[in-house]
């Protein structure tokens, strides 16, 4: 499981203490994830002040909606990333009536930051969202993907190792990857 940790410092106990209303868990979540939240917002909204506002809004929502957070079903980092994408979408919607202004700003002031920043932040967000998802695939899907991901085995090698028909392995890989893909897309669709 260790290789799946998107954020090694994130102590799983913090999921529980956050759900139980421990404010220090929120502070720790802020310490670890506010730079990611802020960067995602900044790249999407292209406005430092708006990104600060979204960051503030995200952690306020995270705390106020903690009763809806189930540590048995989700991890706090993924929960935060999901709320971030919603909050960014809301910020875009709120400024929709200012579309002309936004377009003008975008055209006149393209974000000078390197594109790699966006890639890194988005990739990290994706990684956090999929953290732990392999465990939810069930068996043998989880084992099949772990052999593919961790051990770099081909589908025929996996077929031999697990003594499963080749077609079964391929079918499991297709469905599992599709599920992971939709996990990212569902989340994105809300943003």
């Amino acid at each position: 499981m260790a290789p799946f940790e998107a954020s090694p410092a994130w102590d799983a106990d913090l999921n529980e203490s956050f759900a139980a209303g421990d404010e220090t868990a929120l502070a720790e979540a802020y310490r670890q994830f506010s730079p990611l939240v802020h960067t995602l917002a900044r790249r999407s909204l292209r406005d430092p002040a708006a990104a600060d506002d979204v960051t503030q809004e995200v952690f306020i929502r995270v705390w106020r909606s903690r009763s809806a957070f189930d540590p048995a079903r989700a991890r706090l980092p993924a929960w935060i990333v999901g709320i971030t994408r919603n909050a960014i979408a809301d910020a875009h919607a709120a400024s929709a009536h200012e579309t002309r202004r936004v377009l003008a700003a975008v055209e006149s002031a393209p974000d000078p930051e390197p594109a790699t920043g966006q890639t890194a932040a988005e990739a990290l967000a994706d990684r956090i969202l999929l953290d732990g998802e392999l465990e939810k695939l069930g068996e043998p899907q989880g084992s099949i993907l772990k052999l593919a991901f961790y051990d770099d085995l081909t589908h025929s090698q996996i077929s031999q190792k697990l003594n499963l028909p080749l077609g079964t392995v391929k079918s499991h890989i297709r469905r599992s990857l599709s599920q992971l893909k939709s996990r990212l897309e569902v989340d994105r669709a809300t943003s």
Binding site: F4, V37, F149, L177, L180
Partner: peptide, 28 residues
């Protein structure tokens, strides 16, 4: 699909550049 693989597969982005992330302002 590739995006999902990259996100789920370990080691493809070791130490995902905390440096590339920008912290929020001190008043947040």
């Amino acid at each position: 699909l590739r995006r999902a693989v990259v996100a789920a597969k370990p080691g493809m982005d070791a130490g995902l550049e905390a440096a590339a992330l920008e912290p929020p302002g001190p008043r947040v």
